[in-house]
Design a protein around this nucleic acid. Structure first.
Lengths: 230, 230
DNA sequence: GCAAAAGTGTTTAAACTACACCCATGC
DNA sequence: GCATGGGTGTAGTTTAAACACTTTTGC
């Protein structure tokens, strides 16, 4: 074994899902963490991830980390940032390419959870290994910023959804109430959703329309650089 | 020497400066490229960069690449994206953490230029090594997007400047004319500049005020994550 | 005075916000 | 009928764009 001059390369993923919060009445953001099984930070919670296999895409490694820890498939996946401070890992330098992902809420309820994988409320995390608290904070900022001008909120929902459900996603992410009337107009004029013609039946009030995501609207970075999924 | 299973790690920098274009009357965006001195892509132009020294910060390596190729110091430096497609480098996998930088226009005129370092107009590049054309395209998109909502245009100017100079920067980057009256109001109300009380003398018209950059206004990502400089 | 750019004022349209009010269903 | 959330209408406010007009300098 030769001395390691170069930094090791790792890929990690910040995975967000909406879950009903036992404290608050509404849904809030949760994320799965894995327990470290070796030093440094043995026993502490950390972001899912690992080394980069020789022939795997960065985004592929991020999606795999997600699948292997939670059993879920991301509906949205985008590169967040690359962290490379020489002192961020006590055991030797590690450069981490970090992705962030959104998974569907319904599916997230089925996620694997055991001794070494647990979900935590994103805004109340324990002290994590490495600089992972800071990474999650940055991912949260990106998510909240992007929800306001992008259409990523759909990633938390299924194929079809009501505008009330979409609004609930925005409200949970942004942690503030939104005017239903204005929200409807904003979304409808953005052209990001399409009326399916279907309605929800059996509700004790006027049956809401069901909408579908409109994938023909894009307007992001050139060359389809971002996102990897979504 | 053992077989290389892991990907090699590199840091590259897209460096922007404004230079008067001989074709057009106005200034346009230029960037320095270096000639490859070995395979693959021997002799072709590429982004400045190199491997990551064991104890150097990512942003530090990016700034060093800039200094070593151009002799300049960046006034703005921010991480762009990490490119890691397994097939992007013919000679073996390379994961590149790419930064983008802005240098002051006045200083950029003094930049080193020789057989192996040359400046090119950012919108008319020759075919570059690796996926560097795509990287520059993405960097240009980020620059143009960010100029509209951020205050990075100052990085192209000196300590003090007139609003006409600042407007010229915006116009050169965005490639469109801006209304002087509305530009003034937008900038003044944003609080990003401060009147120095000084004026430019000797001009054959009403002497313009000189402004200074206001560093007390920030409002970006949490934890001072971005930018590294600026 | 004239040319030229600095700087101010005004008008219009578009976008956002708040909130009143009607609609359609289950019970 | 009543409660509840779906959905529409509208007035007030803010923001942005277009452009006329005044100011201050050198020559």
């Amino acid at each position: 074994m030769n001395t390691q001059l170069e930094a090791a390369l790792a890929v990690s993923t910040v995975i967000f899902a909406l879950r009903p919060d036992p404290e608050a009445g509404l849904s809030t953001l949760w994320l799965p963490l894995v327990r470290r099984t070796r030093e440094p930070y043995l026993g502490q919670w950390a972001l899912p991830g690992g080394g980069l296999p020789a022939d795997e895409e960065l985004a592929g490694a991020a999606a795999r980390a997600l699948r292997e820890t939670t059993g879920l498939t991301p509906k949205y996946l985008e590169q967040l940032y690359t962290f490379g401070d020489p002192a961020r890992s006590p055991g030797g330098r590690v450069v981490s390419v970090v992705y962030w992902a959104l998974v569907e809420s319904g599916e997230a309820a089925l996620a694997v959870e055991d001794e070494n994988v647990r979900w935590f409320p994103a805004d109340h995390l324990p002290p994590l290994a490495f600089d992972h608290n800071r990474i999650v904070e940055y991912a949260l900022w990106r998510l909240r910023t992007k929800v306001e001008y992008s259409r990523i909120a759909h990633a938390f929902l299924g194929e079809i959804f009501t505008l009330a459900q979409l609004r609930a996603v925005h409200e949970a992410v942004l942690q503030k109430a939104l005017d239903p009337a204005n929200f409807r107009r904003t979304i409808e004029s953005s052209g990001t959703v399409v009326d399916t013609g279907q309605r929800v039946a059996g509700v004790p009030h006027r049956p809401p329309r069901l909408y579908r995501y409109n994938d023909s609207v894009h307007a992001t970075a050139p060359g389809a650089l971002e996102p990897a999924i979504g």
